[in-house]
Amino acid sequence: MGYLDALRNITIADIKVDLMRTAYDNDDALLNRFDPRIVIIWSAIFVVVPWFFYEPEPLFAMLVASLLLAYLSQTSIYLLGLLIWGSISNIGFIVILSSVVYWWEGGSGGLQGAVVDNSVALLPFTMKLTVISVVSLAAFSAMSPKKLAKGLLSLGVPRPFTFAIAYGYRMMPVLLEEYHDLVNSLRLRNRAPENRGLLRWRYYFYLLKLSIKAFYPMTFNVAKRSRVTVEAMETKGFSHSLCNEDSRELRLGDLEILPRDVTFMLVSLLFVVVVAVFL
């Protein structure tokens, strides 16, 4: 019990730091070196490209490439793991359900054969989804909040929205801490289930209930904070900047497309061509 508890303690704090690192510690991420507009356009393209392929081999090559990219972009292991588990369990469920129905209906090959056939059939689809998710995760977690906001602003997204992104990044750690404190506060005033159940499922269910209960106080606190923020924004000339050309110029002035951005784009497209032709 002590060991499990200790493991859980370390895990929560470590998960928090790991997620923060993903979102904020972008200095060494590969994709952070490029102009944000290129990265955004690039990820838009590569979310569509996998849909043009049907054979497992080229898709597998793309999957490997995207995982490599995710690694180079310092994406959180927990997030990647969660994502991959999501894909597999989603498809896995369909495979099992369809196999059971097939076997039930008396199809030839038996249950085992059905499962194998269905898995193979759904493999390309699974890989497409995984490639798309990994690519977007890598791209958006690699870019620093500042770059992301700048990139979106220069592509025409309205300023209030891009400001909201930067503000969200600023508030996230604070809210995470508050939420954790609220859940702890609730734990100290509730009664844990006496009978822990198999693998302590009752206990985890109880923690889940508390996690949901803590949302309302948290949103209320956020609402209270925003009163001051809105006033402060006025004093910082925010509404003035919405229609001020000089301000926009200052913000976007240092965005420029360098040769390496163009190279990156071309290399990626070349990779796709190679994969299409040879695989």
Binding site: K146, Y169, R170, V228, K236, G237, E245, D246, S247, L250
Partner: peptide, 19 residues
């Protein structure tokens, strides 16, 4: 009152808004 993630950016926020 602090609205940007990085210290330097928040201090420069008002000045940037005024161009």
């Amino acid at each position: 009152q602090l609205v940007q993630p990085i210290v330097r950016d928040d201090v420069a926020f008002a000045a940037k808004n005024h161009g």
